[in-house]
Nucleic acid binder design. Structure first.
Lengths: 179, 179
DNA sequence: CTAAAGTTTCAAGACTTTTTGAAATCTCAA
DNA sequence: TTGAGATTTCAAAAAGTCTTGAAACTTTAG
């Protein structure tokens, strides 16, 4: 009799879990996090660390680490069962909120760091009067363009994070040479 | 005299390149691709593979591979100089178009694969009349919810790809329990 | 056609990240 | 306070990824 014979988890669910795991990987998370979230999301009852490990063939250590990260991101919540000592976990179901949170805490930071690096670079380019070195002028222009892009991007992200509609048109129509 | 003394590439540019490299990594590309694109983007003249390798301290092999991928994604174009035998490369400057292309070719595929996995899973869950097994009903409901999400996501992506404005509200307000 | 210059490919090695398993720590009940 | 069950931590191993460098291939000039 196989490990998961009585668990009520079907092979098809594990496949979905793997697929979500791969999706999450693309979004910069670890595969096991996606697998675990999905398992919990499809489970009618909260699960304990041991069950999770058994279903997904992960060691207790790996389960603990991944659970910790999921809880940190708000993707999974602890829950208790009366009389049981150990912890149980259930999935946060509002995917929209999760995405929002990731955009806010991770992507926004990234964009801001990019803007800072651009600022430093512009400051560190040798000072010369405009027009004195064609190559320098070119680089300055391009750096400025990148800066404009990053500001646009930051604006879009902010809008998304606050649930507003966004319009990607300016992004697309931004000309390389301002005119 | 250092390697890049006469190249006209300033340290600050290399820092920007590294930062972009890290950004690209988050987007699922390889770091060297971001570095190379940036180097080319900030260069007034197209560069040859040898120069790129020298600036970024990469072997000819690594340069060739990364260039190949960049060209495949349309992020870099080959260009020729009269009289020179070897190839030169210049950056595609429309970041908006690049992003659009990635969304279309990569993310859209990903979402579609996800939908397929969901379909398979729904088909493979044991057949039982609704109401006969609470757990099965629950799983079906959640799978259906995931499917709805993925359709919403696909819609948003399509809109973005075709340059339309998008409204993330339905995403956020999607209730777990349909009523 | 040959040779030289340039480019691509790919197996081996270097490096990075993830996973494991065991020990340490924590927690609660008695 | 003690001890059993549960969780967390962490160093070592495994897995995975990236880079290199040499060889194969292509292209063009002579």
């Amino acid at each position: 009799m196989s490990d998961s014979a009585n668990s009520g988890v079907f092979p098809a669910e594990l496949e979905v879990a793997d697929t979500v795991g791969r999706l999450m990987e693309f979004w910069g998370f670890k595969r096991p996090m996606g697998r675990m979230w999905t398992l919990l999301y499809l489970s009618p009852e909260p699960l304990g660390a041991a069950e999770i490990g058994a279903e997904l063939k992960m060691s207790a250590g790996a389960v603990s680490m991944a659970l910790g990260e999921l809880v940190k991101w708000g993707a999974v919540k602890k829950s208790w069962r009366p009389g049981e000592r150990r912890d149980f976990y259930e999935a946060e179901t509002s995917v929209g909120k999760l995405v929002q949170r990731v955009l806010r805490e991770r992507e926004l930071t990234l964009v801001r760091e990019f803007a800072e690096a651009l600022g430093r670079a512009e400051a560190e380019l040798p000072e010369k009067a405009a027009g004195e070195s064609a190559a320098l002028d070119f680089k300055r222009e391009r750096l400025a363009h990148l800066r404009a892009l990053s500001q646009l991007g930051e604006g879009l992200l902010r809008a998304l994070v606050s649930g507003q509609a966004i319009d990607p048109t300016p992004f697309l129509s931004m000309r390389d040479r301002p005119s």
